[in-house]
Write a protein that binds this DNA or RNA. Structure first.
Lengths: 202, 202
DNA sequence: CTAGAATACGAGAGATTCCTCAGCTTTTGC
DNA sequence: GCAAAAGCTGAGGAATCTCTCGTATTCTAG
């Protein structure tokens, strides 16, 4: 949920069932339109049309185009952060949590790579999103650092820096190969990421 | 240099000194404007103004906005490809070429990370650029694969796949940390990349 | 059933952007 | 010194796009 005070805050909270559905329809339509047309050509008119609504209705729920984008981005961040939190909650050895985390990340990003790219690369990233993004990443780094430090099989090193690079490497490679790279399925991608990270910290 | 037939091909080849300078002024102004304002707000009017020219002059040299962007992108690709080619030309052991390549990549990308981001993430990448990009990357992968295969210190593995991930990892991490990450200077970035790649292929 | 609240509609105002073109200035070749 | 070629200018046409607002429709409480 976006912060209370922000030019990207959704406009009003629906009172009727119908309105909730409408808002949801707009969000889903926006996801499809952005994925298909990119940010610049993902016009509000197109989104409204895709949602089967008039442009006026769209602007009842969102004060501007970017507000829709922010909702989509925040949703993705929230989902990812939740996943990471769950996998890294308990101290466990690397060989248990790393494959699990890798698989989860690959899965989350394979879902709609084109939309993901629009949200986090192509489109302008408003402060709201940037802040949440860094926060989520910081959380992940901290959790990884804790697990590295608690693992008796690993040599004591600069776990803080290692954690940063572990997260960065995983995130980068997942983004890089998300969607369909020719000759590289999800399983192979996971295997390779696991290998790289394991050897790095071992 | 962009392909001969393309809606992004520069419009005419200058005949006079003055014209060459003008074209150069436009390109440099565009680089600054794109870096400062991003793709969407990097308008042709702004570029012309930054170059100290009228908008009409700009359109004497470039048929449209994206053509300017293509020239900038191709220049970067050419420069990078040339560097990679030089460093990976001769078969040498990993511990020699890897640090050199890493340093070169970090240096190239530290130059103007904001512009780089606009060119290769934010802006639409026209086919001209995409093709050249994949070609350059393919070259790099092939060269790395050759060196890995020729290195007697390395265990025989799937060098093709390894090469792909080596290039992807280096590229991703350089992009990720290009510019000024707080608490991470260029030397530290290089060291960490070298560590990750070395352990991966060793 | 009815009145008022909530929701939906969509033409078009206002703003921006890319790019053209007719005319002007500078350079070049002789 | 002059004519032709090359280069430069900038007002504004044409095409979008975002977002508003007056009106119409649907829902809900009593």
């Amino acid at each position: 949920m976006p912060p209370a005070r922000s030019p990207y805050r959704p406009r009003k909270t629906p009172r009727q069932q119908r309105a909730w559905q409408t808002r949801r329809r707009i969000e889903q339509a926006a996801a499809r339109v952005f994925a298909r047309h990119g940010y610049a050509s993902g016009t509000t008119d197109r989104i409204a049309e895709e949602a089967g609504l008039s442009i006026g209705s769209l602007y009842q729920y969102f004060p501007n185009k970017d507000a829709i984008l922010v909702v989509l981005a925040q949703a993705h961040l929230e989902q990812t952060a939740e996943t990471v939190r769950a996998v890294l909650a308990e101290p466990r050895p690397l060989r248990l949590w790393l494959p699990e985390l890798t698989r989860a990340l690959v899965r989350v990003h394979a879902e709609d790579p084109r939309l993901h790219q629009v949200l986090f690369e192509q489109a302008p990233r408003p402060p709201d999103v940037l802040v949440r993004f860094h926060q989520a990443e910081g959380e992940a780094v901290a959790a990884v650092e804790r697990l590295l430090r608690a693992d008796p099989d690993l040599a004591p090193r600069d776990h803080g820096r290692q954690a940063r690079f572990v997260v960065a490497t995983m995130e980068s490679l997942v983004h890089r190969f998300a969607g369909d790279e020719p000759g590289l399925d999800a399983a192979a991608l996971e295997r390779e990421i696991i290998t790289i990270v394991t050897r790095y910290v071992a």
